[in-house]
Design a protein around this nucleic acid. Structure first.
Lengths: 150, 150
DNA sequence: CGAGTTTGTGCAATAAAATTGCACGCGACG
DNA sequence: CGTCGCGTGCAATTTTATTGCACAAACTCG
């Protein structure tokens, strides 16, 4: 994991659709060496996967919401059970258990309010272990990246 | 934007490193038609970009934290200014202005606590407009996807 | 209803890119 | 000082993407 590897990772985190020859030129390697490095990073698991990022609005999911959840019982098995329940929802893109006042935090991608209504109904109606939940809406996005700084 | 387009987008959101011929077979199209659809989705902006997703731990950023911020003055220009400030920080991967009790929410990727300390120092020391901020740590990740449901 | 146009498709040829085998150079280590 | 291991570049090969073309379906407008 030297300087070149980091440079490659940074480039790939920005745009993984570039050709290998292109990347090789930018980091100052031959295409074959560059390719071998990328493959090594991939099989080492440093690169987890390569994905397409969609434009939320054009994919019909312009509403972003955050739900913080406080559970009745805070034990690990209860938290886990709730996270699994939330993870099963397609609209839930991130589900975390957290420290502090609340127990869990969900990040949602929604089509409209109706969908939020249906989701909260599903997640919190039967779930007798949820003491309280707070829904927050994202007004403006200042930054949203998948890139991990190196 | 028909059923085939959606199927393609779902596949590409999961794994954009598959070959075009492979994708074509899965959606039941010839490689050329499949490629043309993907290119159309890309130039229409539905596909925003293609990126490599790293393993946070293996990239040396295993700590995930959330900071919610309450500003002194809540006016739009103040919120914007704060978001810009936060967005400039490499450790900040998501920065939103939100509805509700607080004004902004930051999602962080950190190497260690020291980095958090340095960051809060930078973000909140000079920033006299910040009334209060709450730091929360992610204990467990139940789900974390970049895929937008279609 | 029907001619014309637009849009999408498959096939085959072509171009571009990834991948592999091989030999070399450099640094670590005995 | 020789040997080993690792990474590199080059060139050949294989795989993949891309393009031109002809055809079929859907849609439009008179």
């Amino acid at each position: 994991m030297d300087r070149i590897d980091r440079k490659l990772l940074n480039l790939l985190q920005q745009d993984a659709s570039r050709t290998n020859a292109d990347l090789a030129a930018e980091v100052g390697l031959s295409p074959s060496s560059c390719l071998r490095r990328i493959r090594r990073l991939r099989s080492a698991g440093v690169i987890d996967r390569v994905v397409a990022i969609l434009n939320p609005a054009k994919a019909g999911r312009s509403v972003k919401a955050i739900i913080t959840v406080e559970l009745e019982r805070h034990g690990e098995q209860y938290v886990r059970r709730f996270l699994d329940l939330a993870a099963a929802e397609p609209a839930v893109v991130q589900a975390y258990s957290v420290s502090g006042e609340t127990d869990a935090l969900l990040m949602l991608r929604l089509k409209d309010m109706e969908e939020l209504d249906a989701l909260t109904e599903r997640l919190f109606r039967d779930e007798s272990n949820v003491a309280r939940y707070y829904t927050t809406f994202v007004i403006r996005t200042g930054k949203e990246t998948t890139a991990i700084p190196l």
